[in-house]
Computed example of a mutant assay.
Amino acid sequence: MKRFVLCLSLIGAVSTAADAWPRRSMEQFRAREMRREGGPPLRDIQRQWQGRMPGYDYLGSDYDPDQGSYRLKYMRDGSVSWVDVDGRTGREVRRSPR
């Protein structure tokens, strides 16, 4: 019985990962294509914005392939702030309240 339950839980984990894979794969593909077209690499964008967000901790980023932009996430004093950055130029598109 324990083996049966273990098999079912593994099947569920694999199907969940398989469902998420195509979306992440397409986002990564579009990010690589944008980089080939001359956009700055994400690490350069992150470095540029870290200097503009003193006192904030960098939490990570998401890529929006439809807009060609990155959403950088920062935290200070328990409050999360987002900066949307054009992936082609590195310029700010939108920022949540600071």
Rank of each mutant, 00 (worst) to 15 (best):
S15D: 09
Q48S: 09
Y63G: 00
S69T: 10
V85Q: 07
P40D: 04
A31C: 01
R23T: 05
P22Y: 00
V80R: 15
R36D: 05
D77Y: 08
M75T: 14
G90F: 03
A13R: 02
G39K: 00
L8V: 13
M53K: 14
S61R: 03
Y58T: 12
G12F: 07
P40R: 03
R35C: 04
P65G: 03
P40T: 06
R91E: 01
E37G: 09
D77I: 02
F4R: 05
L8K: 09
L72P: 05
E92I: 11
G12L: 13
S81Y: 08
S69A: 11
R71P: 07
V83F: 01
G51K: 10
T16M: 14
S69H: 03
G90Y: 00
G68P: 12
I11P: 07
G68Y: 02
R3E: 15
V5L: 11
P65C: 03
R23N: 06
G39F: 05
Y58L: 07
Q50P: 04
S15A: 02
G55M: 04
M75G: 13
P97G: 13
Y58W: 02
V80H: 04
R30N: 01
Y58Q: 10
W21I: 05
E33V: 01
D86Q: 00
P65H: 11
V85M: 07
D44A: 12
R76W: 05
E37M: 10
D64T: 00
V80M: 09
S81D: 12
V85Y: 01
S79C: 06
Q46I: 15
L6G: 03
I11Q: 08
A20Y: 13
R32P: 00
F4Q: 13
R3S: 15
W82Q: 15
E33P: 01
V83A: 03
D57I: 06
R23D: 02
R95T: 11
Y70T: 00
Y74R: 09
D44T: 14
R23E: 10
M34H: 02
Q46F: 10
R71T: 13
R24A: 06
Q28Y: 03
D62F: 05
M75C: 14
Q67D: 01
R35M: 09
V85K: 01
D86H: 01
D57Q: 14
P54H: 02
Y74S: 08
R98C: 06
Y58C: 02
P97D: 08
A31K: 12
F4T: 15
E92P: 05
R94Y: 04
R88S: 05
P41S: 11
R52Q: 07
R35I: 05
S9L: 12
W21G: 08
R30I: 01
G78F: 12
